[in-house]
Design a protein around this nucleic acid. Structure first.
Lengths: 240, 240
DNA sequence: TAGATTGTTAATCGATTAACAATC
DNA sequence: TAGATTGTTAATCGATTAACAATC
């Protein structure tokens, strides 16, 4: 019980806020790079692409790190956010599935600079043995447990085809990984306590396409209205 | 005005629902592949990884495509969702930035199968001229307007470094593109009417890391409680 | 008719936003 | 002190969920 009171009250930060903290962090880094030492919520919000009320509300979950009438100290706030999202430590990561996407991920410099270190690239395909990607050798998938154990890996990235993804996820969980970033276009089932986030490239395009088809329609309706009257009836059609 | 009444009442579907429709569509395709002709909301929800109440609510925005006491006809519902999200037509797409990620995207088969056709790969780097990726030649970035015009491209994908992304977005908008999928880790500013969706790989990992560091803490607190009493005080520390 | 399952209602929950008192 | 800007409150909005009447 001593622990409970000693430990910080574990404010739980809303998910929507958690998802924006890395964006704020990036904006702060960009300000620091431009030698800006202090910024207002308005300025930081603009750099992050949100409105300032939301930014202040989000930051209020972390604590009071600003100065009324003045703004935020860029370096200080940057440190506080980094600390909050675990960005001050290094996270070992494995990538499973070294196809085109896996190779692109292995080469992606943004991981390293944000505290993620790729400790291994794994693939079940024999033909990749001996290859190196981004200076990291590709190792057999079956070595996963040993690697997770050796490097205390908590985060795994899945970039295998959909059909193989669940097996990979199962193996990751069994090996002790408890956070998974899934690029395979499939729903993974994992035990409670394991976090899965999904990046689905074609779903993103499909969402854009949905809005795009609405835009096309809106334009047509406008022009129909403009001409007003006898025109070919607009697309969409069917249904009751 | 005639148009307004003739055209379907343009129910506006909530964003959260729009984002799930492609997931349902994929689940339906998977059921169809297994020769399942009819499914209940419970079954489809399980396949899509959501609960059935949410699924039924989502589908209710599209219309009444199920049969009480029976369920949904897989092919019929699949068609209705595809129609709603614009998946029955083909969308020409350009990719700008043919580095590792751009090449991976060009090779990604999921686009084509969902109605997206990559009509051009563009890069400003002279050294890529003459190269082909996934059978598509890499062309100079300056040809963007001509290509957008020729193929009536509405959707553009940005996979250039952060520093170049805003310029690319500006050029895309100028050329007539009104939906952008942005992989560059930067906030784009675009005029109203242009949609931007962002895929940010390191942010996804950072969100996982946040939860991961909370898990580690929870475990420590538990063990502290278990031993109960004189133990090293848990991590998190500092702050008031 | 009896059993099953949808489509919808209403309650709840969480996120956003505007406004402003606190305070530098 | 006057001006500026934070941190917080309260209102609003949108999303989720359970429950069940409608209906096959």
């Amino acid at each position: 019980m001593t622990a409970r009171t000693t430990t910080e009250a574990a404010r739980d930060i809303p998910e929507a806020t958690v998802a924006r903290l890395p964006v704020y962090l990036r904006a702060l880094i960009s300000l620091a790079d431009r030698n800006i030492a202090v910024c207002s919520s308005e300025e930081l919000a603009a750099a992050a692409g949100v409105n300032s009320a939301k930014l202040r509300k989000d930051l209020s979950y972390l604590g009071s790190y600003g100065t009324r009438g003045v703004g935020y100290d860029v370096d200080y706030l940057r440190y506080q956010i980094a600390r909050e999202i675990g960005g001050t430590q290094e996270w070992p990561v494995v990538i499973v599935g070294i196809g085109n996407l896996g190779q692109a991920l292995a080469n992606f410099s943004g991981f390293r600079s944000r505290g993620f270190r790729i400790v291994a690239l794994l693939d079940a395909d024999q033909r990749l043995r001996g290859h190196e990607v981004a200076g990291i050798p590709v190792r057999p998938f079956r070595e996963l447990p040993a690697i997770v154990d050796e490097h205390q890996v908590a985060i795994g990235v899945i970039s295998v085809p959909a059909a193989a993804a669940q097996d990979v996820a199962d193996a990751m969980v069994k090996a002790g990984i408890s956070s998974i970033l899934n690029f395979a276009p499939t729903v993974l089932s994992v035990p409670p306590g394991v976090d899965v986030r999904k990046v689905d490239l074609s779903i993103e395009l499909q969402i854009l396409a949905y809005h795009e088809s609405r835009k096309a329609q809106a334009t047509e309706e406008e022009s129909v209205e403009a001409i007003d009257g006898e025109v070919e009836v607009s697309v969409k059609g069917a249904s009751a």
